[in-house]
Design a protein around this nucleic acid. Structure first.
Length: 510
RNA sequence: GGCGCUAUCGUCUAGGGGUUAGGACGGGUGAUUCUCAGUCACUAAACCGGGGUUCGAAUCCCCGUAGCGCUGCCA
């Protein structure tokens, strides 16, 4: 893929006008996994593009060779795809504005830095890292109220001196000449007008001594060249935006529109991290969350549709999403609510669609092979448990008695239901169940109700002990559905086993 | 330290001068088919503080406070 070094002439970039399809980008840095904060930013970009019929570009900002992690890329792609945030242009997708890796565009950035150099808007700086560190130390000590940052030491070097240093191959960076005492203002679509005094900004580095651009240069050049109309990014970039405005100005380009998304915080109000809740998108996948649930939950962090809807499938999110309704306040990631929402989506899912994920968990549990091979049976089990589970894993874990006899009985439930007076009732059940035709839900219910009446007890007196006998626990799906799926042979076996337990207990006086 | 952003129930939020400040999660109480970790109903719970502007402020302005961000040849 060849890209012209410079596309678009200076000053020709038109402002985006209301009604034009917007072009947005998500620009992660491959320094680690994609965390939910980044995912939310990607989601808002995606929703914004879809809502307005625009384009969503994925661009990889891999200009920091020190922090680059080779695995990060695959993880980021997998995370976005899992969440259903397919990008229109970018790695794997292609597009006319590529390449979409900044490391492949370094010639472009150098070219642009040269233009600024030639125009007198930037200068070469030969200061060593040691000098800069020393400078910072002194400023710290002096607690300088003003003018902290680079001291412009190289800003006015004589031309001859610069030539000599260049001839000697002296390492150097390129810095922007930031104007003195000017107000640099921009309009944030979420927060309104924000203004900085240029005296607050030091002469930032555009090109590093290794030839790679800084984020500031690469981001401005790429956003311009890729025709980005709206920059939707995390609010940690607010303070950098005036620098970017200055760079656009130096190039003679019209800046895009900006909207800074609020951050997502951990429950303790601190930064989200691996230690405080998962944070990584793929960790949530592993923990048994559905992509549509995480996506819906994330959309509601910092955004609301304005009415009382909360459970909103993707199409609804796209239809309702507008930047005006994005909140400026940071939001705490409340995993409990995520779990609730996951439960909602679990109920909405078909057993069929859940099968692969649940099956994968069951298969790690050394269960009987023949049962695991019977998909019809598995889907019945999933159907029963997805209604009352909050994570995929719960479906697999709470349904184990469909694959093997319970090893023990819940003590509390046993104390309540496994009493000696149950023995004759179990005998009656055993006899009736052995002959029941068909061994199916409705017939089973009829049998239980009839028998209860004959014995002069409430149906619950038969139902609860049966549940405990066949499942080992005091809760679960409807009993008759459960018995039908388990099958006559299994049910009778487990009832007999429970009968033995109760008899033994009776003798112990328990 | 400087600069900036933010501030409604515990949490996510609605609200854009006049409301009994609404909804959701979680909590509590109750109901329910055989259980609930399901479902339904009910309930407790908030405008950070102080000044203005106004007949009237959750809403507009200022100050304070707190939290967060930036202050890198990281993004």
């Amino acid at each position: 893929m060849t890209t012209p070094l410079i596309s678009g002439k200076i000053g020709e970039m038109a402002d985006w006008k209301e009604g034009m399809p917007p072009v947005v980008r998500f620009a992660p840095s491959p320094t680690g996994y994609l965390h939910v904060g980044g995912a939310r930013t990607a989601l808002f970009n995606f929703l914004f593009a879809r809502h307005h019929g625009g384009r969503f570009i994925l661009r990889i900002e891999d200009t920091d060779r020190k922090r680059y992690q080779p695995d990060a890329l695959a993880e980021i792609f997998a995370s976005l795809k899992w969440l259903g945030l397919q990008w229109d242009e970018g790695p794997e997708a292609g597009g006319g504005a590529g390449p979409y890796f900044q490391s492949l565009r370094t010639a472009l950035y150098r070219e642009h830095a040269d233009r600024l150099l030639a125009a007198g808007r930037a200068y070469r700086c030969f200061c060593t890292e040691e000098r800069l560190a020393q400078l910072r130390l002194e400023q710290e000590k002096a607690k300088m109220a003003h003018g902290s940052g680079y001291d412009r030491h190289c800003r006015d070097l004589e031309e001859a001196r610069v030539r000599a240093l260049l001839a000697a191959d002296t390492p150097h960076v390129v810095r922007l000449k930031v104007p003195d005492d000017r107000s640099v203002a921009f309009h944030d679509l979420i927060r309104g007008d924000i203004a900085y005094d240029s005296a607050q900004l030091d002469d930032l580095v555009l090109l590093k001594s290794d030839g790679f651009p800084t984020y500031h240069l690469a981001n401005v050049v790429d956003d311009h060249l890729m025709g980005i109309s709206h920059v939707l990014r995390g609010d940690e970039w607010i303070a950098s935006t005036p620098k970017h405005i200055l760079i656009y100005e130096a190039f003679g380009w019209a800046p895009p529109l900006f909207a800074h998304m609020p951050v997502i915080l951990a429950p303790d109000g601190g930064k989200l991290s691996k230690r405080r809740g998962a944070a990584s998108v793929l960790d949530y996948q592993r923990a048994g969350f559905l992509p549509e649930a995480l996506r819906n939950f994330l959309a509601l962090l910092g955004w609301a549709p304005g009415d009382d809807r909360e459970v909103m499938p993707l199409e609804e999110l796209i239809a309702a999403f507008t930047l005006e309704r994005v909140q400026a306040k940071a939001a705490v990631f409340d995993e409990t609510k995520l779990e609730w929402m996951n439960g909602v989506y679990l109920q909405r899912r078909s057993a069929e669609s859940l099968l692969p994920d649940v099956q994968a968990i069951w298969e790690k549990m050394e269960l009987a092979h023949d049962a695991l091979a019977d998909e019809v049976f598995l889907k019945k089990v999933i159907a029963m448990f997805k209604e009352r589970s909050r994570k995929i894993g719960e479906i697999a874990e709470n349904s184990l008695y469909f694959f093997r006899d319970p090893l023990e009985y819940d003590a509390q439930a046993a104390k309540k239901y496994f009493k000696p007076d149950m023995l004759p009732r179990i005998d009656a059940l055993l006899a009736a169940l052995a002959d029941l035709q068909p061994f199916a839900q409705d017939a089973l219910e009829g049998l239980y109700r009839r028998l209860a009446e004959e014995l002069g007890v409430s149906a619950g007196k038969l139902i609860h002990p049966t549940r405990l006998a066949v499942s080992g626990v005091g809760f679960g799906p409807g009993l008759f559905e459960m018995l039908e799926t388990l099958g006559r042979e299994t049910v009778l076996r487990r009832l007999r086993k429970a009968r033995g337990q109760i008899a033994a207990r009776g003798q112990d006086g328990n």
